[in-house]
């Protein structure tokens, strides 16, 4: 294909997505669109998978059976979400085994939020309410992303996520209405998770060089700053409702803008955790590798069983 023909195809593609048409797996797409999506979808999948770890810690320590079944179902959903997303990445030609290996070796990135520790039960509340809340803001936008299989995975995920956020908020609500000690625990969790949750939306628009292209391709529909603002505006009243305080002295309603003003985010911390220096980066990867290694025998057993059955079926059919 000549360079001119290629440019024509790219121009046609950009017009096509700008007119809100969806792209399906076998359609022609610019190589960079494919690569951007594989990177984004696989990071998203890895985040779901690693996202199980901070919560898994509390399944056996949940304070009641009601809380335990809810947490268990939430963690199971996250495994499912990881699988929907890996499938979507595969429709673009990515290799599942390679994706998994990149996560296990530490080469691939996942959301930095999961490199923070979960020392108390209130963290289960804060994660559901804030971390899932922030994830939902992003995922609702992605339900309208231009790549069909990714958008469809997001629709399923969003339907399931709303229970995650509600169960988290309910935990916070119960603690905030409990003994002074329980309320302190809830406030402490909010203090620790608030800022990392705001960082989940990524760098500010001026420091997010790839955003413009993603918006042009309709992969992203809203900017990082827009989504962050939406999340803050929605969450502040929820904190007030249960009598907890957002740990930001600069947080103030701005009547003129119709939004909350908020304080400076510590971006050094953000980049430091991405670089691998968060409190739990090492621990998370070790846990993931351990789980993978310990599951090896079952993958092998499934293979052996499938082979044995296939052999038996081929002999019995040849006899018949």
């Amino acid at each position: 294909m000549s360079k001119e023909e290629m440019l024509n195809l790219e121009a046609r593609f950009e017009r096509y997505v700008a007119e809100e048409n969806k792209v399906e797996p076998k359609d022609w797409m610019p190589e960079k669109y494919r690569k951007t999506l594989i990177r984004q979808i696989s990071q998203h999948a890895h985040s779901e998978v690693v996202g199980m770890l901070p919560e898994a810690n509390w399944i056996s320590r949940a304070p009641s059976l009601r809380r335990k079944v809810a947490l268990l179902a939430k963690v199971q959903d996250e495994a499912g979400h990881g699988l929907y997303l890996y499938s979507a990445a595969e429709t673009l030609g990515a290799d599942r085994q390679q994706l998994v290996e990149d996560l296990l070796s530490g080469k691939a990135k996942y959301s930095s939020i999961f490199n923070y520790p979960t020392p108390t039960w209130a963290d289960m509340g804060a994660i559901g309410w804030l971390v899932d809340g922030a994830a939902i803001a992003n995922q609702v936008m992605l339900c309208r992303t231009s790549y069909g299989p990714y958008a469809r995975a997001m629709v399923r995920i969003c339907k399931e996520e709303s229970f995650h956020q509600r169960q988290g908020y309910e935990i916070m609500m119960a603690l905030a209405a409990g003994t002074p000690e329980q309320k302190r625990m809830a406030q402490d969790a909010l203090n620790r998770w608030w800022w990392p949750s705001l960082m989940m939306f990524g760098p500010t628009d001026e420091h997010s060089p790839n955003s413009a292209q993603s918006m042009k391709w309709r992969i992203k529909r809203k900017s990082n700053d827009e989504l962050r603002q939406e999340f803050i505006d929605k969450t502040v009243p929820q904190a007030e409702f249960i009598g907890l305080t957002i740990p930001d002295p600069d947080l103030k309603w701005n009547d003129e803008k119709g939004h909350y003003d908020f304080g400076e985010i510590n971006w050094d911390e953000f980049y430091n955790v991405i670089a691998g220096n968060g409190k739990c980066n090492k621990q998370r990867l070790e846990a993931r590798n351990k789980a993978h290694d310990e599951g090896k025998w079952i993958r092998e057993a499934a293979n052996a069983y499938a082979e044995k059955r296939a052999k038996r079926e081929s002999t019995s059919s040849s006899v018949a």
Partner: peptide, 17 residues
Amino acid sequence: GSLHAPDAEIAIKNARD
């Protein structure tokens, strides 16, 4: 959607989950 499995029987079980 899709999934990975060694045979049809396990594919059905995985699909259920």
